[in-house]
Design a protein around this nucleic acid. Structure first.
Lengths: 224, 224, 224, 224
DNA sequence: AATGAATGAGGGTTCATTCAT
DNA sequence: AATGAATGAACCCTCATTCAT
């Protein structure tokens, strides 16, 4: 209808900014919500960190609460799909696959600001119950599915001892999540490095330790 | 001044109530802070749940923030000492000791409302940095000390393989903490039991799984 | 339950103020809503005119809109009952009764701040449709009933010509209402006395003029 | 400056639109101001109802308040002149003239959206005192002049009894104005037709009723 | 000691107005 | 001329804190 106003690669900067605003606001909101909590974050802070005025925020999100939901929704989309691809392609021993998939996924999340989403959910889920169902469906279930599948395959192939898959999955994953949470709580309280260790090294050693308990005596940890 | 109100061994019940007020307020505050977060909890709610009026709260704590600190401080005291005693008395294999100490400590915490303190600290530590130092000194360090000691003793005795003590301690403990946090976040969002498992059983299996990876091939899991 | 807190004639001034607050707030709100309109009146203005702070207003009324409804509701109660009593007691000619009832009712309303309610309803009824039904039921219908009854009695007795009762009632009443509205709109714009006349005199002459048109040639205006 | 855009008798349609913008904006503003009140009407609503964007409104009127003044000013011009012409041409009895002039004028106003201006003035005159002087000079005074003149002529000719002209004028006119106001307040609150009558019929009967009281016994209501 | 009415600073949200395009 | 994104002052309402009783 109004082709002369359609955004295009050569659109004026005014138009390009508009397209980027929602993401800028979500980024600002995520960092502040994780930092201070939802209730303690003021909308002007979010706007200021996104480089706009308070009123502008409301051009894109109708309320602070909707902004929170947008933050959660957009960070949860497709965090799992990448791992699924890795699994599909893999052919070698399951132990190595587990280590690779978990460590790769975790490093991707831990290094990005998506790591804060775990803290955010822990903090806010009881005040906004919609989030719970969403998170379970989008993250918890597909994630457990994925890891559980690998563990089951290892058992079926005789690489792993016969164990409760559910238990193993949680023993593996909980510390990964915990480190993400830690990064944004005690870990962010400068000066006192509570854990006093390299998180990457820890995660790999943690997985290896569990694999040691998991492997049948004969099985190798990785392809020789 | 009012001798007829002087406290006595046979003081009237409303005198006894007075002595219990601080604890009642702390209990009310803890449950609400854990439930909704510090910022989203109103002081009238705390007072109401403690069965007093809003003004009364301020007779015992000078501000909402001081109330928070009192909540944290009183819940962290002497959660560790019990474990230390167990360790001192124990003589058998370290694997059994680890399982006993960890499971006993965890069950005590998980079943009480002290479990909420973990969520509370994760949520609020960045807004109240005093809490960080306090928590590290009172909980994290003595806890790691205690568990680390047992692991080290197992290595020294040849029961455990030579591993990074720090890593093992965190692999062991993080899921315990995580379950406490879960109880008060997703786990409290009625209806959807995300984990779908018995936490007690999980914790024992988790520890056993790690011990399997930890034990030297010859060592027994428990006293034969 | 708490007899020691029950308000009593000898209650402390603190208690007596509390009992008077709702009326003080309604009076303040009525005058301001009539003066500036509902939307253009700020809640702090209402509070200030009532001699309290902004927060106090919300101890008594949960929102500005509920305050408006309270204003309307309390001013409409029992404005009609007094007239009904006069009618019941009267025995003489209907013309005199009409003049007395209408002029008395009108003077009572015109001189009090209830006169502003007419303007308020005209102004706000479309934004708050609840008010319409309430006003029709509490004021319009009983009022028309009352006046219509007198007119009908006059016709039945042969004092008045046979006319459309409905029309007469409205011809009589509309200028009365109009003067009330005028008092709070153009009439309040100091300096320019648009009507340039004594409203009391006008109302009596207006009624008399209509009665002249109403009376059968033989009937007297009042008891001889 | 831009000769290619110079307006011409055969200007393109978007030029003609431009010329109509002020009127479209005034129409939109009038209907909304009457509906919701000045303060409760948002400028985007006015713009939307006029079919333009919010910014465009400010090309034609420098502020919301100036728009209000424009609305009032343009609706008040020349509502009276038509009546004046009728009076000048008339020769028959004054009673018929009064009925014709008043009913014709009233029907013209009541059926158009000019009827809303009465409500608008009642509602806003205290917030914008400029309007008061303007309205009195442009509408009230010439209107009273016109009607008063006819009444006076009737008295002079012996058609009407000797009465207070001022009173008669207001008794005649107030219900006419009131019906206009009613149309846009209670009358617009769908469903409950408070008056339950045909306004045209009422107005004619109202005037006739007053004329009955006004006429000397011998005078006819209209030319035989 | 206990109450709860009162306060007022502060936060979420709206909207008249501006201005780059 | 027209747009609509952006602004920020202002408004409604909340709630931590105080204090008279």
């Amino acid at each position: 209808m109004h082709p002369e106003h359609a955004p295009s690669p050569t659109a004026p900067s005014h138009q390009r900014r508009k397209a980027e605003r929602p993401q800028e606001l979500i980024d600002a909101a995520l960092s502040l919500f994780v930092e201070k909590g939802f209730a303690a974050t003021r909308t002007d802070e979010v706007a200021a960190r996104a480089g706009v005025s308070k009123g502008t925020l409301y051009l894109y999100y109708p309320s602070k609460e909707e902004l929170l939901k947008a933050v959660i929704a957009q960070r949860l989309s497709s965090q799992i799909t990448e791992g699924a691809r890795q699994v599909a392609e893999h052919t070698g021993p399951c132990a190595g696959l587990l280590l690779d998939v978990l460590a790769a996924w975790w490093e991707r999340v831990y290094d990005s600001d998506a790591s804060g989403v775990f803290k955010l959910i822990i903090t806010e889920v009881r005040n906004f119950p919609d989030i719970a169902a969403f998170y379970l469906r989008e993250v918890v279930e597909p994630g457990e599915q994925l890891i559980g599948q690998i563990v089951q395959r290892g058992i079926d192939r005789g690489e792993f001892r016969t164990v409760d898959v559910h238990v193993v999955v949680h023993s593996l994953v909980m510390p990964l999540v915990m480190l993400c949470v830690h990064k944004h709580s005690l870990g962010a309280c400068g000066g006192m490095d509570a854990l006093a260790m390299d998180p990457r090294r820890f995660i790999r050693q943690h997985i290896a330790l569990l694999l040691t308990g998991l492997l049948t005596p004969a099985a190798p940890l990785a392809t020789p």
